[in-house]
Design a protein around this nucleic acid. Structure first.
Lengths: 356, 356
DNA sequence: TTGTATGCGTTATCAT
DNA sequence: ATGATAACGCATACAA
């Protein structure tokens, strides 16, 4: 019955030497077979493969990584609960595995100290590259990364490295022009979360402000709210601030939110104060996370091409010529109209209007 | 100015030997300092630490892992887009990092072949333990895992390993009794997604059926829908099936969904066919993902204690006595009532009722 | 307490 | 085409 012996009698996993012995060859040859590089005699290769199967041999990557670059792809994410980051991670994982790479994933919670510590861990593991889904902006963190270790910012721009992102300003333009075309004039910009980088917030606001100005509207006088940056605001505080904004005398008739996440927070606040969307308030977000497509949410938003973002990020990170000078790759955003936006309500007193 | 020389002149990263040389000691001593084990002379330790800082030395974990177990925690997740899994992952990452462990995260997309291949990768990396957030049930995958490598199923039970999960049946009981207390009698069970294991679906259905029987209602005659298992149904097909269920003459007045994800799909279908929740239809989910708390969703659901699930899973995985025999740890679920459930509508003809 | 010698499993170099 | 041998960087047992 037991012609082929099962896993080796010893409790320690078989090594390349065990395989060589069983195949009646040398470990060099086995290594060559494994690497699939040099042309090895077919019969020898067959014997080696057979020995591997019989022994249940598995490469010890730790030993391999002592001589070669690791097949680990470091990913720094702020918060996986952010659907945008989670979706991005999914795509990145798929792309990475296509080239035999595995994700070493760390979380920063937006905390600079934690970020520094986690990045250090990635470096220690000699990852092939580091992808930042979020970044505090701390230059020290970047400086700690070896020169020859490719780093990439994905979905946002930041000094100190190459980035792959969407044209933030243009996305903002798309959003605001959509609202303008619906007749809105009191358009606010709202950003609340720390998962968006300082630069991202900056760029989206810039696009918002520039577009308004181009249409002879003054963004400065608007009732915008920007809570990003100091990640100290709790969800409750955010809600309170939003409700105040939505009940103020000069409340906006439309809001361009810095992200879908923020847009949904705004919807919450609107529900809480009895404002109906889009009758009393139009909202447009940014990202186009899956949730935005739910009928209950139906959020008009600026879509980011996540799959392409991820694909290009991974491809570039893994094939990046050493120490190439930083570049910013920019992809076009796209407006997706759903039903969170509608025509501007007729001018009316501060209280909420009844008629359209 | 430059009293302390910056990183070493060579382009290769400094080794423990470089540190020893600079500190005027041996590499063993440096190793001891690094491990923080043996009592090392304070002055020596200080010199070593100084040398490490000056050189910018970093442990080569590949070399370390050749002698010690790796500090990698393998995590197998079906789909990170599933908020339940993403939230679980966040907690797991936090717990793992508390013990200096990093997540090696792989995705299966529910595909058995991909799962086998990814698990193989984890094993090759000599991870300290493997956490399954999802599992196909393929025994071969389990058999490939070395005996002394702790494996844990988190959030569901499965033969072949220890699990940490919620009492599925009791959760189902909670859900159904809640619906019964609201006067519902035509209560359907619906499961649609592949991210829930066969066993989980089984257990939740069992709890559902048992509770109904206890109240002298026949689950068999109900219009339940179970699409789980064959992960071949597209979202569109799921919607079509759901809409058919909701427009049938014998449509249920309440649905116990196998997961929040499914519950939300049901809400979509209800919106599509013009059924108002909870007036025409009550829905209760399972998991209590963050999204369930949004005012637009407001889903009554069975909450799983995710943080505790993650915490105990990691703790157990990392301190698990070798080859202990499988155990199933069960935590209590909790009913969270929101506004997706309401009193049963008055008996009415098949068409949808107007009055309550 | 500190230093020395050795092993870990693999890849790379260089003979043959 | 194949095999012998030298790194690789660290941990560990043991010697001093």
């Amino acid at each position: 019955m037991s012609e082929t012996r099962d896993p080796p009698p010893t409790d320690k996993p078989p090594t390349i030497i065990d395989v060589a012995a069983r195949a009646g060859t040398s470990k060099s040859t086995v290594s060559n077979v494994l690497q699939g590089k040099i042309h090895v005699d077919e019969r020898t290769r067959a014997r080696v493969l057979e020995a591997i199967a019989e022994l249940g041999y598995r490469t010890n990557v730790a030993a391999r990584y002592m001589r070669q670059r690791s097949q680990l792809l470091g990913v720094v994410v702020g918060d996986l609960r952010n659907p945008f980051h989670a979706e991005l991670a999914v795509h990145v994982e798929q792309c990475a595995s296509a080239t035999q790479h595995t994700l070493l994933l760390v979380t920063t919670s937006g905390l600079p100290e934690q970020e520094a510590q986690r990045v250090e861990t990635l470096i220690e593991h000699r990852v092939a590259a580091i992808l930042f889904f979020a970044f505090s902006g701390d230059a020290a963190v970047l400086k700690a990364i070896p020169k020859d270790l490719p780093r990439l910012f994905v979905s946002f721009r930041s000094p100190g490295g190459t980035s792959i992102s969407v044209d933030e300003e243009d996305g903002a333009r798309l959003a605001v022009e959509h609202l303008l075309s619906l007749g809105h004039e009191r358009i606010a910009y709202v950003s609340t979360t720390l998962e968006h980088q300082w630069r991202t917030d900056e760029a989206r606001y810039a696009g918002y402000a520039r577009t308004l100005k181009r249409h002879r509207l003054d963004p400065g006088s608007g009732p915008s709210l920007r809570l990003a940056g100091d990640g100290t605001a709790t969800p409750e505080e955010v809600q309170a601030a939003l409700e105040e904004l939505l009940t103020s005398a000069a409340r906006p008739t439309a809001i361009f939110a810095a992200s879908d996440f923020t847009a949904i927070e705004i919807m919450e606040a609107a529900d809480a104060v009895g404002l109906e969307i889009p009758r009393d308030l139009s909202v447009v977000g940014f990202d186009d996370i899956a949730m935005a497509g739910l009928s209950r949410i139906a959020l008009t938003t600026i879509a980011q091409p996540m799959a392409e973002l991820a694909d290009r990020a991974v491809r570039r990170a893994l094939t990046m010529p050493v120490a190439r000078r930083p570049r910013d790759i920019v992809l076009p955003p796209r407006l997706v109209v759903r039903s969170s936006t509608g025509p501007s309500p007729a001018r009316a007193p501060a209280s909420r209007p009844r008629a359209r």
